[in-house]
Simulated scan of single mutants.
Amino acid sequence: MKKCPECGNPSYDGAPVCGNCGYKFPKQKVTVQKEESIFEKPPELSKKPSTSNESTINILKEKKLVIGAILLITLIVICGIVLTGPNNNNKSTATGGELVKVSEGAFAFKHPKSWEEINGSDSEHRNAKFFKNGDNTIIEYYNSTVESTSLKKITQDRINYAQNNNSFVELVETITLDGRNASNIILENADGNYTRYVSLFSDNNLYVFKISGSSINSVTSPDITEMINSADIA
């Protein structure tokens, strides 16, 4: 309630004039409360965490790197196939030269074309074939029918014969040729040279590679090893 300044009559706060004397009350000024927090501080924008976005970008980058690596490897393989050409069974993997196939009945093997077939003699095996490679190593092949039924006994008999002739046994081992057991023997002869015997036994037939050279390396060279590994019994 408010009082009229002229007559003192009480009036309600919002009355524009006094109900008793007609005095016009002055208009009240309306003040608006200023919120400093709204006008003084700039609005803050909430930032969502970007972890998921960054993870997605990293995954995409990693996938691009993997795809790029796969494409590069594929390109290298294709270039290799184009440059080397299709596989050829007549190509030597050890020397890179052409191979020649030798067949003796049911037995066959391959040797580099660069080998020279030479005349040789073996009084015990007249059907023997002789070759010479680029290192002047002599490779003899022969086959014979034997009464023994054990490759182990054949190997032991050869060792005994070598020792009786003052040869030193450098190596005796069993290897696999054409899915069958074969013996591999390296001897150092009394004259300082080396002889290697690789023997494969099947159905009372003995197939032998006899390699003679000036050193162990000469009788175990890659081209000779490749020739031995090509042995096949039909």
Rank of each mutant, 00 (worst) to 15 (best):
A15D: 05
V82T: 11
I216F: 00
H125T: 05
N88V: 10
T176R: 09
L151E: 01
S150Y: 03
V66H: 11
Y141C: 04
A128M: 02
I224S: 01
T149D: 09
P26W: 06
P26I: 05
A231T: 05
E36M: 09
V208F: 00
D232M: 11
K34L: 15
V198T: 04
D223N: 07
E116R: 14
Q28I: 13
V17G: 11
N160I: 10
K129T: 11
K153I: 15
E124P: 02
E62F: 13
G97M: 04
N166H: 12
D122W: 05
L72V: 14
S215V: 04
S215D: 01
N133I: 00
I175E: 09
I38F: 07
F109L: 03
P10H: 09
N127C: 04
Q33W: 10
Y12F: 13
T74A: 14
E147C: 11
Y161H: 12
L187Y: 02
I224Y: 01
V102R: 05
K41T: 13
A234W: 08
I154R: 01
E147N: 15
V219R: 01
K64S: 14
S55I: 14
K152M: 08
K34F: 15
D203Q: 13
Y142D: 01
T95D: 06
S212Y: 09
E40C: 11
G22L: 10
T220P: 02
T195E: 07
E6T: 14
V169Y: 03
A94S: 08
V66N: 08
A106D: 15
K110P: 06
L187F: 09
C18R: 02
G96K: 10
K29W: 07
I175C: 05
S230Q: 00
V208E: 00
I228Y: 04
L171Y: 12
A69T: 14
E44I: 12
S221F: 00
Y23M: 06
G68W: 03
E188Y: 04
N133Q: 05
Y141V: 06
R180N: 09
L83A: 15
K210G: 07
E36N: 13
N181E: 09
N193E: 15
A162I: 09
F201P: 00
K152L: 12
E124D: 11
V17A: 15
I73S: 04
S50F: 07
V172M: 12
N217A: 09
V198R: 00
E170F: 02
G179P: 07
G179T: 03
I159R: 01
K91V: 13
N127F: 03
